[in-house]
């Protein structure tokens, strides 16, 4: 269990689900929140330092590795790193190929970024739940969530950017009128305009919401299960060994989930942008 024995299970779980929040508390002023309640009281103008740190760190790692490979990429015999990067790039290309947005130079790099970034952020979930937070606690950091994708801010941040791109390309390709027509003239024709708008509006808004909540939900649930398994370590020999076994099994299964979720996020982004690029039905 996490370093301090004073926590009971409920507090332990809550502790693990609280971000390291920096903001302006109405009573304590600027600083790092010391409890999840304090973090909530900081309101909107607070920032999750751990989410920012790990997501930007992992994104930078991804960009650094791929940039380095890109700089030394040769058309001759590729090295191991180049081989791997090319396999991933080829995989993304295959997914973008034969969609309406194939010609758009933004879509494929966007998809690559999403895939790798989300994958790396998800990958943090495989690090034992207490390892990094305990280390941080020892260094005096009260809270630490190392999986950015279990923070809805991160998943919504991505999905809202994708949503903005959907709107942007819908209007750019179809024109404002065409986009408005798509929202209001289907499926019931022009006399059912309010119903159409309601249906298509929900359809449109569901895209970013489902995109981010799917990723968030999967990772949050996965993290939660790791935390629950970790609780078993405090329950004696038999529970501890069972917990260890369960953690291993869940981690193996989780490898599939994190890759799958990264892939789904990427593919849905491509699909949504593809729909945005298509002339109306």
């Amino acid at each position: 269990m996490a370093g301090s024995e004073t926590l009971d299970s409920g507090e332990y779980i809550k502790h693990h689900l609280t971000n390291l929040t920096f903001g302006n508390h109405p009573e304590h002023g600027w600083g790092i929140a010391n409890s999840s309640d304090e973090a909530a009281e900081m309101g909107f103008w607070a920032i999750h330092l751990d989410t920012m740190f790990f997501s930007i760190g992992l994104g930078a790692l991804f960009l650094y590795l791929f940039y380095k490979v890109g700089q030394s990429a040769t058309a001759g015999v590729p090295g191991k790193a180049q081989n791997m990067v090319e396999a991933i790039v080829g995989f993304v290309q295959d997914n973008v190929r034969s969609t309406a947005c194939e010609r758009n130079p933004l879509v494929a790099p966007l998809a690559l970024t999403i895939f790798i970034w989300v994958f790396l952020m998800n990958l943090m979930d495989l690090i034992p739940v207490d390892l990094v937070p305990s280390l941080a606690a020892w260094l005096g950091v009260p809270f630490l969530k190392i999986v950015p994708t279990t923070d809805p801010n991160a998943t919504f941040g991505m999905s809202l950017m994708v949503f903005a791109l959907i709107i942007y390309y819908s209007i750019k390709i179809k024109g404002a009128g065409g986009f408005a027509g798509e929202l209001t003239l289907h499926p019931f024709g022009k006399w059912g305009m309010p119903a159409n708008l309601l249906l298509e509006g929900i359809n449109l808004l569901a895209k970013p919401v489902s995109l981010s909540l799917r990723l968030f939900g999967n990772l949050y649930a996965g993290e939660m299960i790791f935390i629950l398994i970790a609780l078993m370590y405090g329950g004696g020999m038999v529970l501890g060994v069972t917990g260890g076994l369960l953690q291993f099994v869940w981690a193996v299964f989780h490898i599939l989930i994190i890759t799958l979720q990264a892939f789904i996020f990427m593919v849905l982004t491509i699909v949504y942008l593809d729909m945005a690029h298509q002339e109306s039905h």
Binding site: T18, G23, G43, W45, I47, P152, N153, G157, M161
Partner: peptide
């Protein structure tokens, strides 16, 4: 679990 300015930070870094 709170939605806060982290959202914008994430959007910006993603961009």
């Amino acid at each position: 679990m709170n939605i806060n300015v982290t959202l914008f930070g994430q959007m910006l870094s993603f961009a």
